[in-house]
Design a protein around this nucleic acid. Structure first.
Lengths: 178, 178
DNA sequence: TCTATGCATTCATCTAGATGAAGAAATGAT
DNA sequence: ATCATTTCTTCATCTAGATGAATGCATAGA
């Protein structure tokens, strides 16, 4: 959940792929899950729950990494869809890009730092989901991700916040004029 | 959110402290935030929201690390309380224990791995909070943390799940005889 | 042992946010 | 430019879960 700098080795650089807006990068149930560095464009990850509803887990604009870290960390099949909201260039890498014996100290420190900040963002997200009303969560979203507001449709922001699109619409009109 | 093995250097080993049940390890507003390795006992972290309500962010039984990773990662003052639910032995360390130039490759790989699994658990938590009803969240809690059920009062489990204690009580009685 | 304080259960009521429907506005394709 | 599709807004209604109160159970301290 944080703009990061990753040190890409030559071998990972070769795994660059292009995707059109709307194309899906990863479907659920796939094993040997990958992570994706968004070089250009915008992607999102989401689940479809038992009642068929979409829930957006995160957005990834250029410079971010997106992937099912749960599946990667625990060697499970992924449940996340990942697709592109804009035409995108994506570098695909696997668990080894995060930690293996060939990575040097500098790269590892960078990765620890990246993951620490991501845990921090997730901590905030959990606390907000539990303790704050929808209007406050939206205001926090505006602070943290000001660039996304004009790139992502409102119904997707609502999905990210865990509320219905109608509720977000109401919140916005209440914020505009009281 | 995962039982982990950390490689404790000699210098961190000296920072062992003992706390009685009910004692607070960390108050909000403190800067230069630390992380805490629970060697023995049980701790929890929580916030108090704008309306005075407690929300438990996580539990840490022996072998776990607990701390305000958001505050550590972004050099902010912490908002989290951390206190002990049992008499505990705690090793206190700071950001440097996670990543600095003196840590060797093996330790760093261990830390990346630890953080990856914690991100995984948090991912699951976020997805559950957004997409699953309270009863399902409780069932998942029982699966993942079976040891905590007998060590933590129900009202705290409810707080962790983001529901009222009465709601958890109702869910439990419905699960018992449907 | 008795008493107190906190914990769990059950019920009756309330509310934030969900759902559904219908029109207006925006976006996209031909 | 025109038509079709998707998105946004507004309203009326519904529901999962919150809140508050009453009762019975524990655990803790003297």
């Amino acid at each position: 959940m944080e703009k990061i700098e990753i040190i890409l080795s030559q071998e990972t650089k070769s795994n660059l792929k292009k995707f059109k807006k709307g194309e899906t990068i990863q479907f659920p149930k796939s094993t040997n899950t990958h992570a994706f560095y968004i070089k250009k464009g915008l992607a999102r990850s989401f689940i479809i729950d038992g009642t068929g509803k979409e829930h957006i887990y995160m957005f990834a604009p250029e410079g971010w990494i997106i992937g099912d870290i749960e599946a990667i960390g625990y060697d499970q099949a992924t449940e996340l869809f990942i697709d592109c909201l804009e035409d995108s260039e994506v570098i695909i890498f696997n668990k080894d890009g995060l930690f293996n014996e060939r990575l040097d100290q500098k790269q590892l420190i960078e990765n620890v730092s990246l993951l620490t900040r991501r845990v921090g963002r997730l901590q905030r997200r959990v606390l907000m989901l539990m303790g704050s009303p929808a209007a406050d969560r939206y205001k926090y979203f505006l602070e943290i991700y000001p660039d996304l507001i004009n790139r992502v449709p409102q119904k997707m922001i609502a999905s990210y916040l865990g509320i219905a699109p109608q509720t977000l619409s109401t919140i916005r009109s209440q914020m505009a004029r009281p």
